[in-house]
Simulated scan of single mutants.
Amino acid sequence: MSDLDRHRIITDLLRERPFASVRDLQEHLGVSAATIRRDIDKLHDTGRVRKVYGGISAHDGQVTDRLSARPYDENRDIAVEAKRAIALKASALIRDGDSVIVHAGSTCYQLGIEIARRNVRLYTNSMPLAAYLGEHGTCHVTVAGGELYREPGIIHDPNSGGPNFFASRFFVGTQGISSDGLLESHPLLIKAITELASCSDEIVLLADSRKLSIHPRNVVLPLSRIGTIVIDDGLSDAGAKMLEDAGVTVLIANTGGFN
């Protein structure tokens, strides 16, 4: 297969999904990781796609909310090292004795692992995180009540109007980020985030840099509501300026380079 054939297949693939990892492309094309990385570099240099941590993404505005929505069990295996680095950086914001809310989602799950044995009070609506903390954690855990929604991996009561819990920080992930704010397409996540946002002193966004390329149609929270974002070192200068202009404190988690 020629370079041109592989490049066509890769760009066609990104019309069907917002992100493809190096491993995804290896399996799809049957070539080595080194070949995939060279292809990614060439496509990035020509402006046809955007190189991000762990793989390649469509450019801003090329992804619809239908394509960017992924079940939790698929999303958890994407950009894992970046998410772990973000979680480690975010854990330094938490002091012993704090009360925190950790939202559902794969990056927030990694934060929960980091603080599982810390002296904190933790509220979560994440079914996978609650299960992990029940088996491995020693922190004080409060789990959201309600029904289990397996695809996004959350527990939610649509009639509760939010928990009776107040925290110093609400750690939240997002499906996408734009100058308008945090973006989501799943209606249940929109409702859950909106409710939890009123239950803390500060909102801390945990997001890998791919999220600036994903633009679902629904704004959940404006950037003005976000106190801090913890993001990997794949953040572009333009993305950093957008966040800083909105008054968001940007903390960079070092991932050790592009993989």
Score class of each variant (00 low, 15 high):
Thr249Tyr: 02
Val172Gly: 06
Gly173Tyr: 04
Ile231Trp: 03
Thr255His: 01
Gly239Leu: 10
Ser209His: 04
Leu189Ser: 13
Leu221Lys: 05
Ile229Ala: 12
Met242Leu: 04
Val250Asp: 07
Leu221Thr: 07
Ile229Gly: 03
Ile252Val: 11
Ala246Phe: 10
Val204Arg: 11
Ile231Cys: 04
Leu212Asn: 08
Ser224Gln: 02
Arg210Ile: 13
Ser198Asn: 08
Val248Glu: 03
Ala238Trp: 07
Gly227Leu: 01
Thr194Trp: 05
Ser236Lys: 12
Gly227His: 07
Pro222Phe: 02
Leu243Ala: 13
Ala253Met: 12
Ile177Gly: 05
Val248Gly: 13
Thr228Asn: 01
Ala207Ser: 05
Leu212Ser: 08
Phe170Ala: 10
Ile177Leu: 15
Leu221Ile: 05
Ile177Ala: 10
Ile193Tyr: 10
Lys191Tyr: 03
Gly257Asn: 06
Asn254His: 13
Val220Tyr: 07
Val204Met: 00
Gly173Phe: 04
Gly181Tyr: 02
Asp237Tyr: 10
Gly234Asp: 07
Gly247Arg: 06
Asp237His: 15
Leu251Ser: 08
Met242Val: 14
Ile231Ser: 08
Lys211Arg: 13
Leu188Lys: 14
Leu221Gly: 03
Ser178Met: 09
Ala240Asn: 07
Ala197Val: 05
Gln175Leu: 11
Asp237Asn: 11
Gly256Ile: 01
His186Asp: 09
Lys191Arg: 11
Leu183Tyr: 07
Lys191Gly: 01
Ser179Ala: 14
Thr228Cys: 03
Met242Ala: 15
Leu251Val: 15
Gly173Ile: 12
Asn254Gln: 15
Asn218Ile: 08
Ile214Asn: 01
Phe171Asn: 02
Lys241Arg: 13
Ser179Asp: 05
Cys199Leu: 02
Leu206Trp: 11
Gln175Val: 11
Ser224Phe: 00
Ala253Gly: 11
Arg210Glu: 05
Ile193Asp: 09
Arg217Thr: 14
Asp201Leu: 14
Gly227Cys: 01
Leu188Thr: 11
Val220Pro: 06
Val172Trp: 08
Ala240Gly: 15
His215Gly: 09
Asp233His: 07
Ser213Glu: 09
Gly176Cys: 11
Thr174Ala: 09
Asn218Trp: 13
Ser185Gln: 15
Asp233Ile: 00
Ile229Gln: 04
Lys211Gln: 09
Ile226Glu: 09
Gly256Glu: 05
Ala197Asn: 01
Asp201Tyr: 05
Glu244Asp: 07
Val219Tyr: 08
Val204Phe: 01
Phe171Met: 03
Ile226Ser: 07
Gln175Pro: 04
Ser224Met: 00
Leu196Glu: 07
Asp237Leu: 15
Pro187Arg: 05
Asp180Arg: 14
Pro222Ser: 04
Ser224Cys: 00
Phe171Cys: 03
Ile252Leu: 13
Asn254Lys: 14
Ile252Asp: 02
Arg169Phe: 00
Ile229Thr: 13
Ile193Ala: 14
Gly257Glu: 02
Asn254Met: 13
Gly176Met: 01
Leu188Arg: 10
Asp232Lys: 00
Gly247Ser: 00
Gly173Ser: 09
Ile252Ala: 11
Val220Lys: 07
Leu189Arg: 15
Gly181Ala: 11
